Amino acid sequence: MALRGPKVWLWRWRRNPLKRRADEVEAWVVLGVWMLTVFVGVLAGMTVSRSVEDGLAHERVEWRPLVARLVERAPGTASGNGGVSRAEHVWAEARWTAADGSSHSGQVRVLAGSQAGSPITVWTDREGRQVTRPVTESQARVRAVLIGGVAGVCTAVVPLAAGRAVRRRLEHRRMDQWDAEWSRFGPMWGRTTG
């Protein structure tokens, strides 16, 4: 176990007669790795965040609500109370006509027991295919920040891991140099001059 003294800030750049070239190289490697890690993480996070936010804005512009009609009566029965729980919604077949005039059908969530022909709002893309409701601007911003943050952290791990590998290699090299020097000077340690 190594004996460590008190923590000294910027010790790698202080003057020290025992400091070797390997110590200086390691100091610059550490600085470079941290700067690269921060730069890569921030750049990746911002790029992914902007891409996600642009994609979600594109969906808000292109996806449109249409009125669909139930093809058949929805299974189940609705309860008599005024409030509707999510459990009272079921899947049912509906049809709609896209903006280009083509006919489409799909499964939609409706109140249990809804009658055939009941109007239902569905969201569609340019081709009339059913999509989910687009997220709002604030939801898109939160989603973009979260995804960008995860992407930034995951990307920053790469230079950090590479830097750790380089430092480990430098450490082994320095230990090998110390062993070589100790084997040369160690036998002279116990000699006395007479």
Rank of each mutant, 00 (worst) to 15 (best):
T124K: 08
T124Q: 08
T124E: 04
D125T: 03
D125S: 02
D125A: 00
D125K: 04
D125I: 05
R126L: 12
R126T: 12
E127R: 13
G128D: 12
R129N: 13
Q130R: 12
Q130I: 10
T132A: 02
T132V: 00
R133P: 06
R133W: 00
P134D: 04
P134N: 07
P134E: 02
P134G: 00
T136R: 00
E137S: 03
A140F: 07
R143W: 03
R143F: 01
R143D: 02
R143G: 00
R143H: 02
A144N: 08
A144I: 03
V145N: 09
L146E: 15
I147S: 05
I147L: 05
I147Y: 10
G148T: 01
G149H: 09
G149K: 11
G149A: 05
V150A: 08
V150S: 07
V150D: 08
V150I: 13
A151Q: 08
A151D: 11
A151G: 06
A151T: 11
G152P: 04
G152W: 05
G152F: 02
V153W: 14
C154A: 15
C154I: 09
C154N: 14
C154P: 12
C154F: 15
A156W: 12
A156L: 08
V157Y: 13
P159M: 08
P159R: 06
L160V: 03
L160F: 13
L160T: 12
L160P: 07
A161K: 14
A161N: 13
A162T: 14
A162I: 15
G163A: 04
G163C: 08
R164C: 08
R164D: 14
R164T: 09
A165E: 14
R168D: 15
R168F: 11
R168Q: 14
R169Q: 13
L170C: 01
L170W: 06
E171R: 12
H172Q: 15
H172L: 08
H172C: 01
R173C: 05
R173N: 13
R173K: 10
R174G: 01
R174C: 04
R174P: 07
M175L: 10
M175Y: 09
D176S: 11
Q177N: 13
Q177L: 07
D179P: 06
A180M: 09
A180R: 13
A180D: 15
A180H: 13
W182H: 04
W182C: 01
W182T: 06
S183H: 12
S183E: 15
